[in-house]
């Protein structure tokens, strides 16, 4: 039996923060980890913003730049995999800055582990969620509740996982999320009640630490 030791990870709750600011923080935590510091789990919500991953087909955005500006929605081309996605208040976004060398240097496996974090989180709310083969993310029936897109540099991860908690799902109508003809759902839509973001964060941290066999460390 192989007994893997727990590895250290700090937790940083950034609250509601602009996409660019969090991106800068991610890069700082990646550099810090490459220089021997601990791993990090960043949690936040973003003001409404579209992020365009490296596989984005721009025809999956149905509103032009002017229309997005009018709605106060920013746009960023980002160095993650995947197509276009939307972030907005009421959606929990987690950015794990992990040394994937501890977890087998396997991007496929890392994506499945991130899905498992969301599946476990939803299970804690008595919601049965699952994977769909070939469609990274977490699903409730045919509706998507969590999206994933990552970047890896020197086997350190960045970007991550977005879970729809209490967000305004009508915002997704301006894009084809992840380039797919799908409907999105949220925790509050499923439960038919407002869900405490703080509680979701608390449970997410717990599920994340359990799945990746981590121990909490100071920043």
């Amino acid at each position: 039996m192989i007994i893997q030791e727990k590895t250290a990870c700090c937790v940083k709750d950034l609250g509601l923060m602009d996409y660019e600011q969090v991106y800068v923080q991610q890069k700082q935590y990646v550099d810090r980890l490459l220089n021997g510091s601990v791993q990090a789990l960043l949690l936040c919500e973003h003001p409404a913003v579209l992020t365009l991953g490296r596989m984005t087909n721009e025809s999956n955005i149905f509103v032009d730049e002017k229309g997005l500006m009018k709605r106060g929605i920013g746009v960023h081309h980002v160095d993650r995999g995947g197509d276009v996605t939307l972030h907005a208040p009421g959606q929990l976004v987690i950015y794990p800055i992990l040394n994937l060398a501890y977890f087998g240097r396997d991007i496929h496996n890392y994506l499945r582990q991130l899905e498992q974090v969301a599946i476990d989180l939803l299970e804690s709310f008595d919601i049965v969620a699952d994977r769909i083969f070939g469609r990274t993310g977490v699903w409730i029936g045919k509706k998507k509740i969590a999206s994933i897109g990552i970047g890896v540099r020197k086997w350190v991860s960045f970007h991550g996982l977005a879970v729809n908690v209490n967000m305004d799902l009508s915002l997704f109508s301006i894009i084809k999320p992840c380039g797919l003809d799908i409907e999105m759902t949220s925790l509050s839509e499923i439960k038919q009640e407002t869900i405490s973001m703080e509680e979701v964060k608390r449970r997410t941290i717990k599920c994340f630490f359990r799945n990746f066999y981590l121990e909490e460390a100071s920043d």
Binding site: R54, M55, D79, R80, G81, G82, I107, L111, T136, I148, G149, I150, G151, V152, R153, K154
Partner: peptide
């Protein structure tokens, strides 16, 4: 030696090779 040379992309991930 530790400079990133190229960014590659798979379906859901980017990967930098140094």
């Amino acid at each position: 030696g530790d400079d990133d040379l190229v960014e590659l992309v798979t379906d859901k991930a980017t990967f930098n090779v140094s």
